[in-house]
Amino acid sequence: MSLPSRPPHRRVRVTSPQTRIALSRRHRPVQQLLPLPDGTLDDGALAAARATFARQRRLALRTATGLAALLLGLSGLLAALPALDRITVGPVPASWLLLMAASYPMLLVIAALHVRAAERIEDSAAPERHRPAVPGPGTDAHRPGTGTTTGTRTGDWGPAAGGGRP
């Protein structure tokens, strides 16, 4: 992973791998596809990844529907019931209160419920993926070690093993 071979008399700038990757992004050839994080992609891992994706997508669809129902429903309610303008809660008209203050907690609840459900899906997916059909020795070694996903962009190291690419 050293710098591309340069004549020894040239000054070599010493940078971290991340920095180098970021700086050389535009020299990258056409997009190189990453392998799934496990490096190897056996049928078991692929099926697990597909199942996780399907569950996350169903959840995302549910949350999006809920959000649309809240926003369009609340505004529709205020449009349909002008009487809410005349009812007051303390000194404030009920319709104003719904718009000004009540919508934010509801948005927060929708988002928090989604995040909790999405994390549960991930938690239940993680053990499955750690039981590959053939536990090859390289399974963990190929795992990109850090969260800096830039470092996993294999394109900068030339062809990487296992990536299904065009």
Partner: peptide, 21 residues
Amino acid sequence: PPEWAERAVLRLHTPDDTARP
């Protein structure tokens, strides 16, 4: 879509970082 499109999508949803050190 190209053949690799599915993996590109799946990767976005695969919890790799939950178990990372």
